[in-house]
């Protein structure tokens, strides 16, 4: 059962990374415009830039 000493911290660490990622995305304002985000991904404004 000594393997637990490695596995449990790893499990907790992974969960903690997820938590930090979420709090970061919240701070970065990624949830401010939920409807817009879903349509912006389909916009091809970056293609226009490449045209001469």
């Amino acid at each position: 059962m000594t393997i637990l000493i490695i596995l449990v911290p790893i499990a907790l660490l992974l969960g903690f990374v997820g938590l930090v990622a979420f709090v970061w995305s919240l701070k970065a304002g990624q949830y401010d415009d939920m409807d817009g985000a879903s349509v912006r991904v389909l916009m091809d404004d970056d293609v226009e830039d490449r045209k001469p």
Binding site: D33, D35, G36, V39, M43
Partner: peptide, 27 residues
């Protein structure tokens, strides 16, 4: 409609001096 986002942001970006224009589609 979603097309308004690009239309508005592009038009605003072309105005002299504007450095950032972002439309929040939700509100």
């Amino acid at each position: 409609c979603a097309a308004c986002i690009g239309e508005i942001e592009t038009a605003m970006g072309r105005l002299d001096g504007v450095t950032g224009a972002r439309l929040n589609y939700t509100n």
